[in-house]
Amino acid sequence: MRREHLLLGLLAAALLALPLALDRYQTSVLVLVFLSAYVGQAWNVMMGFAGLLSLGHALYVGLGAYVSAALFVHFGVSPLIGLLAAVAVCVGVAMAIGALSFQFRIEGVYFALLTIAFAEVARIGFDHLKWTGGAGGLFLPVAGSDGQWWNLRGGPLFFYYVALAMAAAAFALCAALRRSKLGYQWLAVREDAEAARAVGIDVTRARMSAVVVSAAMSALGGVVHVFYYNNVFSAQIFDMTRSIDIMLAPIIGGIGTLFGPILGAFILVPLGEGLIFATQALGVNAPGAKAVFFGLALMIIIFLAPNGIWPSLRKRLGIGEAKP
C-alpha cells in the first residue's frame, strides 16, 4: 500500500468517527467544509482540468437547488428523484452555454464573462418567477418530516455524513477522471488547445464534457444545499460572491490538483467562521471584514503561490499525486 493511500484511509477513518467528539455547531461547520470541498471539486473539473474559467458557477448550484426544491414543495417529489431533474436541467443549460461558447469560439476572458452573465440572468429571472416565490425566496416545509431520510430531512449529523460521502465520491470520481483518457485530453486542451487539435483530440467535445460533468456535480451540491438550509433566495444563491466562494477553496488549495479543493475548504470555512467570531467580538461589520480578509488572502495567494498550498504541502508529506 502506498503512503498516500494510507494517509487517505486514516483521514477517512478520522472523519467517519469525528462527529462523536463534536457538538452541533462544530458538526454544522464541517458540513459546510464538505459541501465547499464538493462544489470546489466540481469547479476544478472545468478550470483545473480543462482550463475553462467559470466565474458564474453559482448558476448550477442555484439551478439544482431551485429545481429540486420546487419539485418537492409543489409536487412532493423526493429530492432523490428531484436531483435527476436538477442534474438534467443543469446539464441542459451547461450544454447550451457550451454550444454557444465553443461554436462561436468564445474563449478565455470572454468565456468567463459569459458564465457571469448567465448566472446574472438566472438571478434576475428567478427574482421574477412567481412559481418559485420570486424575490421572497422559496421555503421548504420543515414540520412533521423528521427522520424522512429519503426526503433529505435531518439534522447536522445526518448532513455531515451526506456531505462527507459527496466530498469523498467527488474526490474518487475526479481521481478516476484524471487518470482516464478524457482526463488526459482535458489536460492537453488546457495546456494548448491548438496542439491538442493537431494530435487529433476533439477539443470542443473535450471541453463540452468538462462543462457537463462539472454542471451535473454542482447540481447535486445545490440539491443538498437547499435541503440542508430549507430555503433558497435567488439574490443569494446566484450572487457573484457565491460564485467566488465556490472558486476560493480550489484556488487556495491548488487549482488542478485532486486534494486542493478539500484542503482549501478545510482552511477557508473554519477560518471564515473564526473571523466572524473575531469581528463580532471587536464590534465591526462582520460579513464585510470577513470578505475583505478573503479578498486579501486571494490576492496574496495568487501573488505568491499561484499553484496553491497543496503542491508544496504534498512534497513535505512525500505524496506523489499526479502533476496538476
Binding site: L53, L55, M247, A291, F294, G295, L298, M299
Partner: peptide
Amino acid sequence: FILLVGLAIVM
C-alpha cells in the same frame, strides 16, 4: 483575473 477579483472583493 483572480488578482483583480480579490481586489474587487476588498474594495
